[in-house]
């Protein structure tokens, strides 16, 4: 079984600041880490390998220094690491990123592709599902539990607002995962030592045999016009109890606040 995990290097902060003039993230002086959701994808990939056998490959698209997150993935126990890097990929939106990763993963081959549900810097949650669309393979997002996995099919629980769905899919499939799925393991010393020496497979635009028009800024149909922090929503209050109780509470609240 071939398991591919998409990992992204992100700035280590939940409060990313934005340059108001360029509308881009300010990355200076912020240390880089593996996107936290991707850590759960790595753990899931390793657990699938332990249960069903196979080979786990971590892949990232980014500048040369993104190699660091691949070495961290290797130290956790991933078998192979692939860096998709080229100046031509610069400025990719989610479409172009997904297209490039799709082409690169096609190169490697995959039965299961795992992604974090979203990256903590861009927060779009689009690249994973878009990769699946390019492949024309099923995808299941927000996986909170892998119930069963074999070489042909997988059964998972998908997190919903009011509980979870149980979804079965044939392979190949793409899954995006949430924190509830697992606790990512720490690296091992042997893993760290091996990761330091491991060879990282590098894939450039030329290797993908694609039209340059489909890559990077040129291949990106969306353009960011403005990024801003939305005004906070007004206060809200959840009423508790049975319908009658809640209605009388609601009426008295509305009277109190002179709405009625």
């Amino acid at each position: 079984m071939k398991i591919v995990i998409c990992v992204k290097q992100v700035p280590d902060t939940a409060e990313v600041r934005i340059n108001p003039e360029t509308n881009t993230l300010i990355r200076d002086g912020v240390p880089s880490i593996i996107n936290p959701f991707d850590m759960h994808a790595i753990e899931a990939g390793l657990q699938i390998r332990e249960a069903a056998g196979g080979e786990v490959t971590a892949i990232t698209m980014g500048p040369p220094q993104a190699e660091q997150v691949l070495r961290e993935s290797l130290s956790m126990g991933v078998d192979k690491a692939v860096l998709v890097s080229d100046r031509l990929f610069a400025g990719s939106d989610t479409w172009a990123t997904a297209y490039t990763l799709y082409k690169a993963i096609e190169h490697i081959g995959a039965d299961i592709i795992l992604c974090g549900k979203q990256a903590i810097d861009g927060d779009t949650a689009q690249v994973g599902p878009e990769i699946a669309e390019f492949f024309d393979m099923p995808h299941i997002s927000y996986i909170r539990k892998i119930v069963d996995v074999s070489r042909e099919r997988i059964v998972v629980q998908r997190l919903m607002d009011d509980g979870f769905d149980v979804v079965e899919s044939k392979l190949p499939v793409l899954l995006t995962v949430v924190r509830e799925l697992n606790v990512p393991r720490l690296p091992s010393l042997k893993g760290k030592m091996a990761a330091k020496k491991a060879e990282i497979v590098k894939i450039s635009a030329a290797d993908l045999k694609v039209d340059e028009q489909d890559l990077g800024l040129k291949g990106s149909p969306t353009q960011v016009l403005n990024i801003f922090a939305p005004d906070p929503k007004g206060n809200r209050k959840m009423l508790q109890g049975g319908p009658e109780e809640m209605v009388s509470q609601l009426v008295s609240e509305l009277l109190e606040s002179k709405c009625i």
Partner: peptide, 20 residues
């Protein structure tokens, strides 16, 4: 268990016996 997974128990044990 975490220390075991991280190979720390094998730190001072020779490589021929599975240590570091």
């Amino acid at each position: 268990k975490t220390l075991a997974q991280s190979d720390l128990f094998g730190l001072f044990i020779p490589e021929e016996y599975g240590g570091l």
